[in-house]
């Protein structure tokens, strides 16, 4: 391990502490001045905060060291028109590329959306909590896979949107309509959790890689502007998990019902 790596790790730790500081001030301020009670198991809680800080610093530094450079480079290479023209053989002329020629991009978007979501710490936190609250009927892995599938589909569709240049808001509004319809049919217990899973998916791991993919595409596809079309992938990634989590619950309910009927 080089000295540079240690210095970087230290900087990341300082950055993480700066992020946590306002939160700590609010929590301890309210605890001391409003609730006026000592914090139960104070030592343990403090140690927990320390673990979170050090853990996040290692996590972020590790991503910076290993995954982000390679992932971002890959996003740039995959969206390069020269690469796309070389794998499709359909046409030598970059300007004539069709949306169908970008299949590796869609596949990469799907795969990277799925895999980064599985590793997302905030989703893990919500899944652990949901598992506790539901007394085990919602599995930690089951929920994470459902969310990750939603993100994967969302980001793949989002890259398709950038390639074709269709307006973002039509996709989002159509997504809302589907969510609202599903809400009336999904089991009541899952609804709040499903809505939450939209917001937790896009965090430390997903955002940088997905943003690189979006900006790469928007800057290389002819006729797209980075400024106007580079955004929107995150919005897709936060909308589709709502649908996939409700679908997961509907599917489990339906299977349970069917099992009851046959036996």
């Amino acid at each position: 391990m080089s000295v540079d790596t240690l210095i970087e790790l230290w900087h990341t730790l300082i950055g993480t502490i700066a992020d946590v500081l306002p939160i700590a001030v609010i929590i301890f301020g309210f605890q001391l001045f409003v609730l006026r009670k000592p914090i139960p198991h104070f030592g343990r809680v403090l140690a927990g905060f320390l673990y979170v800080l050090i853990g996040l610093a290692f996590f972020l530094e590790g991503l910076e060291l290993a995954l982000f450079p390679l992932g971002k480079l890959m996003a740039a290479q995959l969206t390069d028109p020269a690469f796309i023209a070389s794998v499709t053989h359909a046409t030598e002329q970059v300007a004539k590329l069709n949306w169908r020629d970008y299949y590796w991009v869609y596949l990469f978007a799907f795969a990277i959306g799925f895999s980064t979501t599985i590793a997302e710490p905030s989703l893990l936190a919500v899944a652990i909590k949901a598992n506790q609250v539901s007394a085990g009927s919602i599995g930690v892995m089951g929920l994470r896979v459902a969310v990750a599938l939603g993100v994967a589909i969302g980001i793949a569709l989002g890259t398709y949107r950038i390639v074709t240049g269709t307006p973002l808001h039509w996709y989002i509004i159509a997504g809302y309509v589907v969510v609202v319809i599903q809400t009336f049919f999904a089991p009541k217990l899952i609804i709040a959790l499903a809505y939450d899973s939209g917001g937790v998916t896009t965090s430390t791991v997903t955002v940088p890689l997905v943003a690189a993919l979006g900006l790469g595409l928007a800057s290389t596809v002819p006729g797209r502007s980075t400024l106007l079309d580079g955004f929107g992938l995150i919005a897709f990634a936060s909308l589709f998990p709502i649908m996939s989590v409700m679908a997961y619950a509907q599917l489990s309910e339906w299977r349970a019902k069917r099992a009851n009927r046959t036996y």
Binding site: V52, F59, A66, I128
Partner: peptide
């Protein structure tokens, strides 16, 4: 880097449950 991420995630989960 991968080792860092693995250690970091494990520590984060521990801190989550404790703090």
């Amino acid at each position: 880097g991968t080792l860092f991420v693995v250690i970091g995630l494990a520590l984060f989960v521990k801190g989550l449950e404790m703090g």
